[in-house]
Design a protein around this nucleic acid. Structure first.
Lengths: 230, 230
DNA sequence: AACTCTATGTCGGTA
DNA sequence: TACCGACGTAGAGTT
């Protein structure tokens, strides 16, 4: 049905059957089917950013015509998931070659963590960086500092407004270290904080540091990026 | 550029500038641009299920030609985000009308919760349903039961293999009720459990119930669905 | 609008 | 491969 390396787009009236982690069935209607050379399958309708049905990269595609119908079957293993698309009428069929580039995104949590590591004394004067992404039984801790008096500073970083779960995550880490008999201080760094999260944070005795404090460092990396791209 | 109600597909060589919650820039390359009547904008490449860049529904689109280039600008407010796509060459331009249907998905967490509520004694004989999606300062609790001895059973439901964060979520809820002086039992219901999560669960004294126990009820709802769709 | 959670999430990294 | 957490997550439901 499609040549190696080509993206295939089919526009027409189809019904869709999906069976896998969940199950769904869509009655006959006008839709757009996209098949990518990496096995990705997307079925889009007239609205929404998300496809109505899809199959992730690595899926196996197969197509055949029967009874004047185009039938497309996509299979994915582990977990086993199948999509069957049945076209009863076609409006367009397009083959094209598209690029495969790497997009660098600036301003992610990664960038924020980096600028924290470069400026630990913004959080506490004289604090030293112990490490980042430190694995514990409770998950990975974003950043760990050591303050001058020897106590630990455990930092959870969020790049978006932090909610209850962010504070709970921090709590898990702090409790892990304090249960080992270490003196620990919990710090949440985020652009902002929901009211509920704020309540929880102060109840736990943690500290909030605005991500804005690190915006200068962030801006620097942005400038470098813009310079690079011009 | 596009008529009301039509989906517009542009295939060609373009560069993309995105600025909003984050920032990115993509050099000139062959890509597919999709604009939906609800304002959704998608830019796809040769691989991946996710678009390289996008704009969600409700965004405002604008297009114009200048210096032999097609420039598409999409703006979204709250948060303010902008995408500028600059086409230097066009391979195809397609307009089509697509459907906008509602897809019913079977086998979600919602379905699992329902079958739990219909069979609470699978968890504990004689237990009664108190309620579901009960709001607490720690978030919403999936299901709360009351056992015959009057103690609470707090249930966290996951429709997929549960990890550490699922156990942590349950822990939050249990601690909330027990801090109010209520006797609480924590139960996690999921198809399976990661090893790390299992360790945490038993450490906390919670109970795991396989979602498989409720598969009969699930199957029933599936049967009804299949009957309906035929 | 803010907040919470689910998702066929997807994706990347790591052990 | 399993597990973990971020994501410009999106999307739905409630307050």
């Amino acid at each position: 049905m499609y040549r190696q390396g080509y993206v295939c787009i089919v526009i027409g009236i189809c019904s869709i059957e999906y069976k896998g982690r969940a199950t769904s069935y869509a009655d006959s209607a006008a839709r757009m089917l996209i098949v990518k050379p990496d096995g990705t399958l997307l079925i889009h309708e007239s609205s929404k950013r998300e496809p109505l049905n899809w199959q992730p990269p690595g899926s196996r595609i197969d197509a055949n015509c029967k009874d004047n119908k185009l039938i497309v079957i996509s299979k994915r293993y582990s977990p086993l998931e199948t999509i069957i698309v049945e076209f009863t009428s076609l409006d367009a069929l397009i083959l094209c070659k598209l690029a495969s580039t790497y997009l660098r995104v600036i301003g992610t949590e990664e960038d924020l963590v980096k600028s924290i590591i470069n400026n630990p004394s913004t959080i506490e004067p004289g604090a030293e960086v112990i490490g980042r992404d430190i694995p514990t039984p409770m998950g990975k801790v974003d950043v760990v500092l050591k303050s001058k008096d020897g106590s630990l500073i455990v930092i959870e970083v969020k790049n978006e407004r932090a909610g209850i779960s962010a504070v709970a995550q921090l709590k898990r880490y702090v409790e892990h270290y304090s249960s080992m008999g270490v003196k620990v201080q919990g710090v949440l760094i985020a652009p902002s904080l929901s009211e509920e999260a704020k309540r929880l944070l102060y109840k736990e005795g943690f500290r909030f540091v605005s991500a804005h404090e690190f915006s200068k460092a962030k801006r620097t990396s942005l400038d470098m990026f813009i310079k690079r791209s011009n």
